[in-house]
Amino acid sequence: MPVFYGTDIQSRLMLGTAQYPSPAILADAFRRSKAGIATVSVRRESGGEKAGQAFWDLIKELDVALLPNTAGCHSVREAVTTAHMARELFDTRWIKLEVIGHADTLQPDVFGLVEAAKILTEDGFQVFPYCTEDLVLCDKLLEAGCEVLMPWGAPIGTGLGLNNIYGLRSLRAHFPDVPLVVDAGLGVPSQAAQAIEMGYDAVLLNTAVAKAGEPAAMAEAFALAVEAGALAYQADPMEPRDMAAPSTPVIGKAFLE
């Protein structure tokens, strides 16, 4: 099971808390997902007088670790300010750092991300950066003090799955000891299983569950998928090969070529 900044988490599934039909359905989805971490957006709900408190109180009742995020922040300054607000509101040093670089694709601004990660780490935050699968970027994030990396599978909310398998594999191979989480872009459980089969420590998703016709059922489906993926990874999967290899012996039959 994943360990983030020294904290053991009892699940490979991390769930977002936005876009559910109701807080009650959200709570139901969390119960069935057995997720260990809930991400929560601070920025939009940050009115005066802690206007989002009623919703946050419902989130706190979920009995999971809370990972506030800087979703929707488009600049370093905005992300840093939001992180500080989150630390105060949720009493945690954890921050999922998002610095959005492109309004349409919601692609991370990788330059701003490194800068913000450095500022926040120096300020005592434990940063979970939402990044691309670029190896050099990930190296810079580790240099900046991040001890977790959260590369995207595909752009946020697209449900396209793991767009760059090669890139994600090579991250795993280059950083064998860094907790890696596929964050964003997952649409169906098989894609989550695929990430965990590759040795990823966890997956983080939101839309795939929240926007499903039955969020709670989909949450459970993802829970089963990450369990299957982890079991498969531990079982040391076979390597794919081009040559067909029958699983029953072919004694007594002639070689064809």
């Binding site: 009115g47 007088e49 206007a51 408190q53 009623a54 919703f55």
Partner: peptide
Amino acid sequence: QIESGERTR
């Protein structure tokens, strides 16, 4: 539709 009790702004 924002999870906030704020009634102004």
